[in-house]
Design a protein around this nucleic acid. Structure first.
Length: 275
DNA sequence: CCACGCTCCTGCGCGC
DNA sequence: TGCGCGCAGGAGCGTG
């Protein structure tokens, strides 16, 4: 279940393949969120030039003889991962696409049991998928002033708003839940009631939690022994997410669980009283 | 325009 | 022990 830190960690891991040339692409299951393009084998002969990330989308730039560039969008969905595995190891179930590189012992496997992810040509999908996105949470554009102004125009629950990719990208259910807890904000609080100081607190916590998770993701990468994708935030202690019924670490009040726009939302009724 | 609920899919955990 | 059910989740998209 990759959130932004996992995607960023994946992007970093792919940098070791920069300069390598694709020798073969095998697709065993094209049915992802959208179908894998049937001309994906046009990557053969192309060299990986650059890895980038926008929100939870990986953007991989390839070039052929330094001329035509082909860009790929990869989204890991909920259960996806890009794993570099030795040629001698047996492919796993749910390895839907495998990319081989010249003069390496490595195959790059797109592994995604739930198939919520996507592998797409950038040129065909960038407009649809990337145009409406809000600022990166760790960028200078995500400020308290911005967040408060964005929130001022809606009565939606604050949790729904910070999970909305048009407001800010990369804040999934887990990080939204944790950030609101540390900010002492009730997840159902109408967004337009958010004060500037509260917005500042929220921005600060979103940023520190994400930055810390990226740091942890990097550390799990170095002793890369996981094959199930359960790295990253599963390693860090979560203060409220998934802890409903258990005592709040700050006040011992039992953590409650509600649904907000269909998502489980754990919070402390004592510490998060901004409603 | 806005807000919500549906949808895709599989693995897991729980209850019996 | 085994079976079956319900839930989880990112995010585009349809609907009211």
């Amino acid at each position: 279940m990759p959130e932004l830190p996992e995607v960023e960690t994946t992007r970093l891991s792919l940098e070791s393949l920069i300069g390598k040339t694709v020798s073969q692409v095998d697709v065993s299951q094209p049915k992802l969120r959208w179908p894998i393009p049937d001309d994906i084998d046009r990557l053969v002969g192309c060299r990986l030039e650059k890895t980038a990330r926008r929100a939870k989308y990986l953007i991989l730039t390839f070039s052929q003889s330094g001329a035509v560039s082909r860009k790929l969008i990869v989204h890991l969905g909920m259960s996806g991962s890009l794993q570099q595995r030795d040629l001698h190891t047996t492919p796993l179930k749910h390895d839907h696409a495998v990319v081989y590189f010249d003069a390496t012992n490595i195959r790059l496997c797109y592994h995604d049991p739930r198939r919520f992810g996507a592998i797409l040509w950038y040129d065909e999908y960038a407009d649809k998928l990337l145009n409406h996105l809000g600022p990166e949470p760790l960028s200078e554009h995500f400020t308290a002033e911005y967040l408060q102004q964005y929130c001022a125009k809606t009565t939606r629950a604050i949790k729904a708003v910070i999970m909305d990719q048009a407001c800010v990208v990369g804040v999934g259910n887990i990080y939204a839940t944790e950030s609101l807890y540390f900010s002492n904000l009730h997840p159902l609080m109408p967004a337009n009631q958010l004060t500037l100081p509260q917005a500042q607190t929220l921005v600060t916590h979103i940023q520190s939690i994400l930055a810390n998770a990226i740091r942890l993701g990097g550390s799990t990468l170095r002793d890369y022994t996981h094959s199930d994708g359960k790295t990253g935030y599963f390693q860090q202690t979560l203060a409220v997410y998934g802890r409903h019924g258990q005592p709040c670490h700050q006040c011992n009040t039992p953590i409650e669980n509600i649904k907000i726009t269909g998502r489980a939302s754990a919070y402390c009724p004592q510490c998060q009283k901004s409603l």
